[in-house]
């Protein structure tokens, strides 16, 4: 990292970071051992998962639960555990290929109206 990183002349002084929120570029998704997946048939859009997610990784569109930010989701499983209707299922990363989900983690068996699967 040090070889490509800017030298002392090119860094802002004082250790100040002047790119607010740039940790978004840092992907914590690869910490994950299991990923949450969503069954839209069960989901009631109560957004409990959103309010309890430590990583801001529950995607909400127009007040509806829209899936997961897999670039940052660390797979803690709080969303699945706190979901009052068991709409979220944790799936081992090793077995992800065995489940049909879209890129946001919405199961393909879910009704198409909310997802991007058109």
């Amino acid at each position: 990292m040090s070889d490509q990183a800017p030298g002392w002349k090119d860094l802002p002084i004082g250790g100040v970071i002047d790119h607010a929120g740039n940790s978004f570029e840092y992907e914590t998704g690869d910490w994950r051992a299991a990923r949450p997946t969503l069954d839209k048939n069960k989901c009631i859009d109560c957004l409990q998962c959103w309010v309890f997610c430590p990583d801001g990784s529950i995607l909400v569109e127009d007040e509806k639960m829209a899936g997961f930010d897999y670039q940052h989701c660390k797979g803690c499983g709080i969303c699945a555990h706190t979901c009052p209707v068991d709409a979220i299922e944790m799936i081992s990363e090793e077995k992800v290929g065995e489940v049909e989900i879209d890129e946001w983690g919405v199961k393909k068996s879910s009704p198409p109206e909310k997802g991007d699967q058109g």
Binding site: T28, D45, I78
Partner: peptide, 26 residues
């Protein structure tokens, strides 16, 4: 209500390195 709150911008960006499942960051 959560629907209203969810429309506000997230002030803490993801990509932080708190433990997976950290209660403090919640």
């Amino acid at each position: 209500n959560l629907k209203e709150l969810s429309k506000k911008p997230e002030l803490l960006s993801p990509g932080h390195r708190a433990c997976a499942g950290c209660g403090s960051v919640i």
